[in-house]
């Protein structure tokens, strides 16, 4: 007993002499030294995360607007659009990434397409709710004033549907920030890559820092879009 105790003390002494005592060594959850020393890794992951989210939201929105207008105007397109988007939204993200692999390969594009499909689903529904909510009498008034259907859409229906569309964009942005992490399955998950590799290495600071950054990013998107919505719909401020 005595000898083993002595050996243990000796090992501790050696460790204390060679390894500096800091939060990385202690494997603390909150570790400013981690942020300091790995800032380039963190920034790279954050950059990839932002790229994934921004591109997929842009693609999703660019496709959602014409789809929603089509579904609003053409009765048969509505059922098809709603049916297809329900199926897309139901397929779990892990499965969606793998399903796209044979066609797109191991690349960030695979993650972008999957995320764009999810945000498209949310956006189409919200835009459609907004367009459906336009008072028919307002539409009649626009027609009575001699506006063509396209001008009615642009000048009357679009502004009235904007609050619902923006609410959809906020939900889509927040969910996309969170879902992008799952891209780690194919190595393109932005901050998600740091979470999975940090977990595998038992690296508390990395997992917590990347997780907190994810949530901060989601909240930042939400607040930015809320601000944009207020600016775009001044008539709703009272």
């Amino acid at each position: 007993m005595l000898t083993s105790g002595a050996v243990a003390v000796g090992v501790d002494a050696v460790h204390a002499a060679t390894i500096p005592e800091n939060c990385l060594v202690r494997n603390d959850w909150v570790c400013p030294l981690y942020v300091e020393t790995r800032s380039s890794v963190l920034l790279e992951a954050l950059g990839q995360h932002l790229y994934l989210v921004l591109v997929s939201l842009a693609v999703g929105a660019a496709l959602a607007v014409p789809l929603a207008v089509l579904a609003h105007r053409v009765r048969r397109a509505r059922g098809l659009t709603l049916g297809v988007t329900t199926v897309l939204y139901t397929i779990p993200s892990l499965a969606m990434f793998i399903l796209l692999l044979p066609f797109v390969g191991l690349s960030a594009t695979t993650v972008v397409i999957a995320l764009a499909l999810y945000s498209l689903t949310i956006l189409v529904r919200n835009i459609l709710v907004g367009l459906d909510g336009v008072d028919p009498e307002v539409r009649d008034a626009a027609t009575g004033m001699g506006l063509s259907p396209w001008r009615t859409l642009w000048r009357v229906e679009a502004p009235l549907a904007l609050p619902s569309a923006m609410a959809g964009l906020r939900v889509a942005a927040v969910s996309t920030v969170a879902l992008a992490t799952v891209g780690a399955i194919i190595g393109y998950g932005g901050l998600g890559n740091l979470i999975t590799s940090g977990y595998q290495a038992n690296f508390n600071a990395q997992v917590l820092t990347a997780s907190v950054l994810c949530v901060v990013l989601a909240v930042a998107f939400d607040l930015l879009l809320l601000g944009a919505q207020r600016l775009a719909t001044p008539w709703r401020r009272s």
Partner: peptide, 18 residues
Amino acid sequence: SNAGRAVPVLALLGILLL
């Protein structure tokens, strides 16, 4: 419901496991 959307599954599970 907002919080449920903003927190990634990977983040919460990764933290809980450690």
